[in-house]
Nucleic acid binder design. Structure first.
Length: 281
DNA sequence: CTCGGCCTGCTC
DNA sequence: GAGCAGGCCGAG
C-alpha cells in the first residue's frame, strides 16, 4: 500500500529520530513477516549493531547497519512506529503493541521501533551486501534520479504490448510507483491507462516522465497519501489524499472538465481516469 | 503477461 | 456472504 512517497516520508522521520542508535534487543511476535526465521537467528544478526543510516530504494526501507542491512517492505498494510520507551501512539491508532504488531526493535536512547501489519503481506529481512545486490537487480531506476529519463522510458516501453498502466507498475521498469501514483501520473500526462506500451507515441513520453516526477515530488512534500492505513512513524497522516485528481474519485467530476471520473480494471487493478482529459495513446 | 495466492478488515 | 483494498511473487 505505501508507495514511494509514503516510504520516503517514513525514511525521513526515522532518520531524524533513530539514526546512530544501537539495536539492543529484538522481539518476533509473528514469524511470517521475518520469513519464519527464528528470533534467535535474527537476534544474532541484529543485536549490538548500529543503525548507521536509514535509506530507501523503491518501496523498500533499508537500515544500513555496520555491517549489513535490515530491509523492510511494507506490503499493503505495513506500518513502522518509532516510540520513546513509555510513550505510546497518539491519534486514532490502537495502543502498541497490539495483535498486529509483529516485530519490535529496542534501541538505544529509549527508542522502540514497532512493525505493525494487518494483512501481513510485508517482509522484513536481514541482508548482506550480496543480498542487497540481488534486490537491486530486480529494480529499475528511481523515478526521481537522473537515470530516469525520457530516453530510458522510451526504450523500456518499446515493444511492450501490455497496457502502460501495467508497465508503470512493473518495478523492474520503474521502481516505486504503485496504483495511486500511476493513475495520477497518467492523468497529469493525459494518457489513457489502457494504451499498450508500444502504441504510446514518442511525444507522450516526455510529459509522462515529467508527470511521474511532479506527482511524486508533490506527494512527498505533503507527506504521502492516507486513505486508511498509512501513518508515518510519528503516527501522522499524510496530506496528499486531498489533492488526488482521479484515484478514488470514480463518478466525481473531473477537476479539469467536470466529466465524471471513470473506474475500471486495468492490469488487474482498480484504475481511475478521465475519459475526456486522457485521450492519448 | 496474466492469474491466483497470500491476509485481514471494511462496506455493501 | 461477496467483493474490494495502496503489493509482490511464482505458476502456467
Amino acid at each position: 500500500m505505501p508507495e514511494l512517497p509514503e516510504v520516503e516520508t517514513i525514511r525521513r522521520v526515522l532518520e531524524k529520530k533513530i539514526k546512530n542508535c544501537l539495536i539492543r534487543r529484538i522481539e518476533v511476535r509473528h514469524p511470517k513477516p521475518v520469513g519464519n526465521q527464528s528470533e534467535s537467528a535474527l537476534a544474532k544478526r541484529l543485536t549490538g549493531r548500529r543503525i548507521v543510516a536509514v535509506e530507501r530504494r523503491a518501496k523498500y526501507l533499508l537500515f544500513r547497519l555496520d555491517p549489513g542491512w535490515l530491509m523492510i517492505h511494507l506490503g499493503m498494510t505495513g506500518q513502522v512506529f518509532a516510540l520513546r520507551a513509555p510513550q505510546t501512539v497518539v491519534s486514532d491508532l490502537p495502543e502498541l503493541p497490539d495483535k498486529h504488531t509483529h516485530f519490535i526493535l529496542t534501541l538505544s536512547r529509549d527508542w522502540r521501533l514497532m512493525y505493525r501489519d494487518i494483512r501481513r503481506f510485508g517482509r522484513i529481512r536481514v541482508l548482506n551486501d550480496a543480498g542487497l545486490r540481488e534486490l537491486e537487480e530486480r529494480l529499475g531506476p528511481e523515478p526521481l534520479s537522473k537515470d530516469f529519463t525520457a530516453g530510458y522510458l522510451q526504450k523500456a516501453l518499446a515493444g511492450r504490448r501490455a497496457p502502460v498502466k501495467a508497465l508503470l507498475l512493473n518495478q523492474k521498469i520503474i521502481a516505486g510507483l504503485g496504483n495511486i501514483y500511476v493513475d495520477e501520473a497518467l492523468f497529469r500526462s493525459r494518457i489513457a491507462p489502457q494504451t499498450p506500451g508500444d502504441r504510446l507515441s514518442g511525444r507522450a513520453i516526455r510529459p509522462l516522465v515529467d508527470a511521474i516526477r511532479e506527482v511524486l515530488r508533490e506527494a512527498i512534500k505533503h507527506r504521502g497519501t492516507t486513505l486508511s492505513d498509512y501513518y508515518d512513524p510519528e503516527s501522522r497522516r499524510g496530506g496528499f489524499q486531498d489533492r488526488l485528481r482521479v484515484y478514488g474519485r470514480a463518478g466525481e467530476p473531473c477537476r479539469i472538465c467536470s466529466q465524471p471520473i471513470r473506474r475500471g480494471v486495468v492490469a488487474q487493478r482498480g484504475t481511475h481516469w478521465c475519459p475526456k482529459c486522457q485521450p492519448y495513446g
